[in-house]
Design a protein around this nucleic acid. Structure first.
Lengths: 291, 291
DNA sequence: ATCATATTTTGTCCTAGACAATAAGATAGT
DNA sequence: ACTATCTTATTGTCTAGGACAAAATATGAT
């Protein structure tokens, strides 16, 4: 039995949203304490967790609440994991923790950094996301994998004395920081001097940090869990707060639906990074002709 | 001009709290858009930031709102930084980024891990906290220092094949993860097998992770920014959800006012860790007689 | 099929009142 | 003078039901 605030943190759903769902759809139906405050029983929490996952998979609340709890559960099980990457699934679900690091490093050496990210890490993340959503991957294992991958990728970010300096970070509320890391390494590979601040920063702190690093650009990542509205608001605010000579780069699934913000380069596909780099930092080629 | 939600994230103050302050104290007095929604101007945001800092320094809202903005600013400037640690202040504010790592490592080698933490890192954190609160330390520099210290400390956490296994983590909303890291290293030094998950986890995920690691105990850190109420609720909930044979250890300033939760060891001072270890894991001495 | 327009859906914000948990102040007892 | 218990004040979180713009979907026209 948890309070509405705890539930909100647990699921990453706003308190207001939880209440309005109850009003509109008649679910959840929490019990009440003597004060009349909501107390959510475990069964409903589990159900809401499924709803949230299905929502992230593209289903809309109206449809989901029209189903019974059992139907929703069935719908989630029915979501198939992409089976093109059968080898990746094995890696994700079965390879032992101790071998994981070695396996990842082997892949990195075989493919080279760029291909490792685009052809291996990106699909890996997709399989992981999907595995987590469909309940086939434990949270703990996901953390283990993320950690392992993050350690290896961070090693690639050796400082550069030349090239445009870019600060990579995420804003408050953003739990997924791996996409940011992947993009940072790709920009680094293109010859940029990338600085990673893997924390959830309030927008005001971003200004301070960009200034401190004397960065030429700031890159931000917005995962699907962030409401597009919020991403838009924060990006617009940040653009107004930053000097105009500092470029802004934004990416992530929250921006997938064409978003045109003046003075901000939006990039929803990691494959576009090299062309984005060429566009935004044209003098890069001079310094590093073998792009 | 930012919305109430953005302001809430920016300051770490609840949306409801911001509204109730306005109702009770007549401040802040945000403008409104055409919908009647609050829009906070920059000057008031700065003032609220000062209020939040003073609140963290122990002042109460009632008193603070009775003052003018200028008086609050004066009060904050008047808060003196502890001058016993003058050398630390220099380190914090003036030592160059490149030398920082070297300086910290020198200190570590001279003092040994335990003394480095208790006699150097802890005061350092205090000076940093205070420096940030009183505006004498930029956010960016604070990040740089934290990062540098974290990197060095993490290296100390080499896995152990023996000793009680403890998972260290923080719950959703906890921004300060450095205290957790310090305690993890101290426990490690006492002979425990410490695993660090430096993320803000929902309570349900903590259960999953403790299970995954097959841990004997879980340690949680609650900084001053967390409301004691919330810490209490989460700890109680977690205790109920965890098997009784798994120990719980909680620490941090949010628990400073004697909190007695059944089945949870509370430790608000890092100096107590060795005795806490002796109490909770009595067979440690047998494996590592030179404590 | 592609684009512009109408409709539904959805999340966030509003007001004003309530109350328990916490902290502070007051009183009594060693 | 100092600690323990009681009383009062302060503070944060929760409630209800209404409102509306932004996003998503359906409809119609080219």
């Amino acid at each position: 039995m948890i309070t509405i605030q705890q539930l909100s943190q647990e699921l990453g759903i706003g308190v207001d949203t939880l209440r309005v769902w109850e009003r509109r759809f008649g679910f959840p139906t929490p019990e009440r304490n003597t004060r009349g405050h909501r107390l959510y029983p475990p069964a409903q929490i589990d159900d809401l967790r499924i709803i949230k996952k299905l929502q992230n998979l593209g289903h809309r609340p109206k449809q989901l609440f029209a189903l019974t709890a059992a139907e929703r559960r069935a719908l989630l099980n029915q979501q198939h994991v992409d089976d093109r990457h059968h080898d990746l699934q094995q890696l994700v679900t079965t390879v032992a923790a101790a071998q994981l690091d070695k396996e990842l490093r082997t892949q990195l050496q075989q493919r080279g950094i760029e291909a490792f990210i685009l052809e291996f890490a990106v699909p890996l993340l997709e399989v992981m996301d999907r595995g987590w959503l469909t309940g086939k991957l434990s949270i703990a294992r996901e953390h283990l994998l993320s950690d392992c991958l993050a350690t290896i990728l961070k090693e690639q970010l050796v400082p550069r004395a030349y090239g445009p300096r870019i600060v990579f970070t995420t804003l408050s509320g953003e739990r997924h920081k791996l996409g940011l890391l992947l993009s940072a390494v790709l920009f680094h590979q293109q010859g940029c001097d990338c600085h990673l601040v893997m924390e959830e920063l309030p927008v005001a702190e971003v200004l301070s940090i960009v200034d401190f690093f004397a960065a030429d650009a700031v890159a931000l990542s917005f995962s699907i869990q962030i409401a597009p509205r919020q991403a838009k608001r924060d990006l617009a605010w940040l653009r107004k707060g930053l000097p105009s000579h500092i470029k802004m780069i934004a990416g992530g699934f929250a921006l997938r639906n064409g978003m045109h913000l003046p003075g901000i380069s939006v990039c929803t596909d990691l494959g576009q990074i090299s062309s984005l780099c060429a566009r935004e930092f044209p003098d890069l080629n001079l310094q590093k002709p073998t792009g």
